[in-house]
């Protein structure tokens, strides 16, 4: 079976330069699975998520590659058709629950508007589906919450609202960009439990951006390790935690602290490893020619 989301040889540069931000990235997310995207800060994790959703910043330009959503290449489609396809079949869970909701509009409207205006649902259907979804993310008194404003909810509640609004239209793909970084560990645990439960029940394909290998271990099936915009390892979670293949991923895993074991503590990736990946990437860059230009 082919994957619902397939990224093939995706390269992006800083517009007007030949500085590569993404280097021939290949990523698959089959239906009903969770793909983790890890790597150091600035590696390009968010950039991949934004490329899939068609919301790259102006300064970034895709120079080659394909993003196939259910077999259709998003990059080859006219913009209007692409927006419609992305709007109907994907959703995102943003990183920051504080700024992702409009402070001056009621929660209910913010969820149903998208269903009514973009997907053309009947208002009554949108409302009942929203209520169902709020119940699914275990929000007490969903009827009442629909009428509240974002600031009247705690951070954890807001993040649940965002999860509900991501799943509400039954998208086939969800991109989650560090959805729990802003939350404390106890809330993070609940939210991650919720995401993986919903994902399993609805059979959604999930691309999960994070820098926390602990989180990957808990909710992902497979993962891609990114370094400087290049996928250095593409593997399953079981295999990765047993024996990471690439020295950089091994170093990353070794650097991850386990609070149960004080001897293992946060440490930087050793310079030798950094040099080796750097050299690997430089070598790949030398042989790289954009297919058109």
């Amino acid at each position: 079976m082919s994957a619902f989301l397939e990224i093939r040889g995706l390269s992006a540069v800083l517009r007007g330069t030949d500085l590569r931000l993404l280097r021939s990235v290949d990523i698959d997310v089959p239906v009903g699975t969770v793909r983790g995207l890890v790597g150091e800060s600035g590696a390009g994790k968010s950039m991949i998520g934004r490329a899939v959703l068609g919301v790259l910043p102006r300064a970034v330009e895709i120079v080659e590659g394909e993003i196939l959503l259910d077999g259709r290449d998003l990059l080859a489609m006219p913009p209007v058709a692409r927006r419609r396809l992305i709007g109907a079949r994907t959703a995102m869970i943003p990183q920051d629950p504080l700024t992702a909701l409009n402070p001056s509009r009621r929660i209910g409207r913010q969820i149903t508007d998208r269903l009514v205006d973009i997907l053309g649902w009947e208002p009554a259907r949108a409302r009942s589906r929203t209520l169902e979804m709020l119940a699914e993310v275990r929000i007490p008194e969903p009827e009442r919450v629909l009428r509240l404003y974002p600031h009247e909810l705690s951070g954890g509640m807001r993040q649940r609202i965002l999860i509900a609004s991501a799943f509400v239209a039954e998208p086939e793909l969800i991109v989650a960009d560090e959805p729990t970084t802003a939350l404390d560990v106890t809330v993070q645990k609940q939210i991650l439990g919720l995401i993986s439960e919903l994902q399993a029940r609805h059979g959604t394909a999930l691309l999960f951006v994070t820098h926390d290998l602990g989180v990957v271990a808990k909710i992902c099936d497979s993962l891609s390790v990114l370094y400087a915009g290049k996928v250095v390892e593409d593997t399953t979670v079981a295999r990765f935690f047993e024996a990471p293949a690439h020295p950089y991923s091994a170093a990353l895993l070794a650097a991850t602290p386990r609070h149960t074991d004080p001897a293992s503590s946060l440490k930087p990736v050793p310079p030798a490893v950094m040099h080796a990946v750097g050299a690997e990437i430089a070598a790949a860059d030398r042989s790289w020619r954009p297919r058109h230009g």
Binding site: V185, T186, Q188, L192, A217, K218, F241, R258, H259, T260
Partner: peptide, 25 residues
């Protein structure tokens, strides 16, 4: 860490995700 006194401290400690897929959370 060795001997948390308060329930809430223990709850915080338990919620940390360990980088090990075999350990139940």
């Amino acid at each position: 860490f060795e001997d948390p006194q308060h329930d809430y401290t223990r709850e915080l400690l338990d919620a940390i995700p360990t980088p090990d897929p075999t350990v139940r959370w």
